[in-house]
Design a protein around this nucleic acid. Structure first.
Lengths: 229, 229
DNA sequence: CCAAAAGTGTTTCACTTACACCCATGA
DNA sequence: TCATGGGTGTAAGTGAAACACTTTTGG
């Protein structure tokens, strides 16, 4: 069976830049290509948009199929449509970026990708297609968004310390922040719940744990509050 | 002749939200549909992405063909891909927004649209497809962008008064601004060149004319300057 | 007791906001 | 001379940035 149209159509795909954060760095999830072109090279997880799904759904599905990831923060990034971005044929891709808690997800390389692994966002290997440019765009977007929306919490475990949070911002924004000013600002927003728990297993004074108060954020935002770091 | 593929493909289109500003209001360019579906209804200018052009190029081409517009500010907005957004078949559209100087462009209704006209952005007629949602998204984006980038000037004639500029921001942001503070802030940015000319043909004191200094903006931006209204 | 990170306030400066009157011009 | 918008400065408040030492804990 084949599908025929009066005019030629570009193929439509999705590609996902999945960010995770570990103790050292901001990471990006890459899969090793099993097929030509760019066989053996690293690429973003992604694939074709089916007729019965939206691009959003296609992105979620690909993340599930290629990396076993579910229920992550996902946002459309940009649509890349250079005529020659795929050497085989005309392919337009809707790019997404996603945030996952690395603490949850040890990635299992899944069915249609031969391997999936996390790479330091700051030092990625050469990527297939125009994926390097997509990652670059995603990083910029993340840097902007993380300052104006509390999406950074998607990268942390549910309970975290203020130092972890600060390090997150320092890592993503690639600049140091003042500890006292940071804590003042964050705590002043009244978005964190102070837990009666402390960090475990550290070889020094244990820090207090906090959690992000999602409901409170929604309430404040309704009342005109604007998150800004 | 027809084009056959192993798997079915969504059609890919572009749609443009073109903003213009006249003495009263922010306007959006709409075309009247000559064909089913939604025949006779207003819609955004747009059309199919050809195989030999990028979505950006397709958007520029459609603007030229449908409205006789050229060389405008154009930026990709978002890709809309709801499965049922077109009742005929699966169509994914890459939406753009554009800014034009209404002073230049009296729109000529062009070839493949039966009519094109400007409508108040705040009170649009019912639109075909999901175009109302696209316009809504474009308006929000414009409101954000106009504050963080000096794109508002694209809506004004090359020479303009500070009152015109202020009115532009008040119109787009839909809130009043303080005259003295506005002038202080804008002039303090050192982005406007004070011309030795004044407004003509007004029945009261003529205001001084300014122009936006594009080169200066690029230089300042390189040096870390951030436009913010 | 030492190393390592946690936790904590104050001052300074820049920027934002609020606010009201006189001026120039054409009709 | 009148109506209409053009043009101007100051004071108060708010938020950002700079900055260093003490505390707690495990090893």
């Amino acid at each position: 069976m084949s599908y025929c149209y009066e005019f030629p159509r570009p193929a439509l795909t999705v590609d996902c830049v999945v960010f995770g954060l570990d103790d050292e760095d901001l990471k990006v999830l890459l899969v090793e290509r099993g097929l030509e072109p760019f066989r053996g090279q690293w690429a973003l997880p992604g694939g074709f948009v089916h007729l019965d799904e939206t691009p959003d759904e296609a992105a979620l599905r690909e993340l599930r199929e290629e990396a076993g990831l579910i229920a992550v923060f996902l946002e459309q990034l940009y649509t890349f449509g250079e005529v020659a971005r795929d050497p085989r044929e005309r392919v337009v891709t809707v790019a997404y970026y996603a945030l996952v808690k690395l603490s949850d997800h040890r990635v299992q390389a899944a069915t249609d990708a031969s391997a999936a692994d996390w790479h330091r966002a700051a030092r990625l290997p050469p990527l297939a297609f125009d994926h390097a440019r997509i990652v670059e765009t995603a990083l910029k977007r993340l840097q902007g968004k993380v300052r104006s929306k509390p999406i950074g919490f998607e990268l942390l475990p549910p309970k975290f310390t203020l130092s972890q949070l600060q390090k997150l911002y320092e890592t993503i924004l690639a600049r140091p922040l003042d500890k006292r000013n940071f804590r003042k600002k964050i705590l002043g927003m009244d978005l964190l719940v102070e837990l009666n728990e402390v960090q475990q297993g550290v070889p020094h004074r244990a820090a207090r744990l906090y959690r992000f108060d999602e409901k409170r954020y929604r309430a404040l935002r309704k009342a005109g509050f604007n998150f800004e770091v």
